[in-house]
Amino acid sequence: MIKWIIAAEILFWIAILAGLFTRYVLKHKQLSYLFFLLTPLIDLALIALTVVDLQSGAVATTAHGISVIYIGVSIAYGKTMIGWADDKFQTYFLKKESTKKALYGIEKGWHELKMLGRHVFAFAIGSVIFWLILTYIDPNSTEAMRNVWRIWSIALLVDGVISISYLLFPKKADLK
C-alpha cells in the first residue's frame, strides 16, 4: 500500500509541475488547468486502491491510514499547495520576485488560525473516510488504522494549541 501512496504523491507533484510548466513556459493557460484537474483524480484513485485493497482481505495497516490522511490533506490544502508551488516556480525558474510577504503580529495569528481551519477540514474529510472504510472491513483488522486516526487527532490538538498561540503571543517582526 505504501507504494501507492508514494506513487500518488509523485503523480500529484508531477501534475502540478506540468501545469506550472505549461502555464508559464509554454504559455498555454487552458492546458495547465487540465494538469491541475488531474490532482483530485489522483486522490480518487488512491482512495479507490485503498478500499479495493482492504475489501480484498488485506489487514488494515498504518499505510492504509496514511492514505486516508493524504486524501484529507490533499483536498483541504490542495489549492494552498498549488499556490505555494506556483510562487516557488515563478521565483526559482522564472526569476520573479516572490509575491509572499512575511507575516507578523495579529496578521500572522489570523493566518495560522486559517491554516488550522484547513487542518480541521482535512481531519473532517479524513475522519469520514476513515469511519466509512472501517465500517466495511473486518473490525478485528482495523487497529492500525484506528491508531493512525488517534495520532492524527493528537496532531490536530497540538496544531490547534500552536495556532492559537500565534494570536495570544503575536510574532514580532525581525529588527535588522
Results as ranks from 00 to 15, higher is better:
residue 24 Y to R: 08
residue 76 A to L: 05
residue 52 V to E: 06
residue 32 S to P: 15
residue 125 I to H: 06
residue 152 W to P: 00
residue 136 Y to H: 10
residue 28 H to D: 14
residue 115 M to I: 01
residue 161 V to K: 02
residue 103 L to Q: 00
residue 27 K to I: 11
residue 20 L to I: 14
residue 11 L to W: 09
residue 17 L to H: 10
residue 18 A to R: 08
residue 96 K to F: 12
residue 21 F to C: 09
residue 134 L to M: 14
residue 49 L to Q: 11
residue 80 T to I: 11
residue 121 F to D: 04
residue 158 V to C: 02
residue 122 A to P: 00
residue 21 F to G: 10
residue 162 I to A: 12
residue 45 A to M: 06
residue 44 L to W: 14
residue 118 R to E: 13
residue 50 T to G: 05
residue 86 D to R: 06
residue 95 K to I: 02
residue 46 L to E: 02
residue 176 K to F: 11
residue 64 H to S: 01
residue 54 L to H: 04
residue 117 G to L: 07
residue 79 K to Q: 12
residue 15 A to G: 09
residue 123 F to D: 01
residue 176 K to Y: 12
residue 166 Y to T: 01
residue 35 F to P: 13
residue 33 Y to K: 15
residue 140 N to S: 08
residue 55 Q to E: 03
residue 41 L to M: 13
residue 64 H to M: 00
residue 73 V to L: 15
residue 27 K to L: 12
residue 144 A to N: 04
residue 100 K to G: 08
residue 49 L to A: 15
residue 172 K to G: 05
residue 57 G to A: 04
residue 87 D to E: 04
residue 102 A to Y: 10
residue 174 D to P: 15
residue 35 F to R: 14
residue 95 K to N: 09
residue 169 F to H: 08
residue 147 N to A: 06
residue 158 V to M: 02
residue 72 G to I: 10
residue 40 P to N: 07
residue 173 A to P: 14
residue 170 P to Q: 02
residue 94 L to Y: 13
residue 99 T to Q: 10
residue 40 P to D: 09
residue 165 S to I: 05
residue 117 G to F: 07
residue 48 A to T: 12
residue 135 T to K: 08
residue 113 L to A: 01
residue 104 Y to Q: 11
residue 59 V to G: 02
